[in-house]
Amino acid sequence: MPEGTNKILDLRGEICPYPMLKTNEELDADKNIQMLEVITDHSPALSTIPPQAVKRGYEVEIMEINNSEWKLILTKEVK
């Protein structure tokens, strides 16, 4: 099985629609990403990123890591 890549995307400070746009850009640029950790402090992103990630075949886990800071962990099995 080929190695997929793991990446971290720190989007704190960005507001709509950039958290979602930048996540999409990242996922579309490299199809081999098996795990992308997105860090955001913009709560609307919690409802805009998951549908886009799922559409691209990722599973999404959302964790609150701090006061109004979240980590979205997007994972996919790379074939």
Binding site: Y58, E59, V60, E61, I62, M63, E64, N66, N67
Partner: peptide
């Protein structure tokens, strides 16, 4: 929803409240 999991821990203070 199988492909979305949300975990929330109450790690914040209550000063804001």
């Amino acid at each position: 929803m199988a492909n979305l999991l949300i975990r929330t821990e109450n790690i914040m203070g209550s000063k804001q409240r």
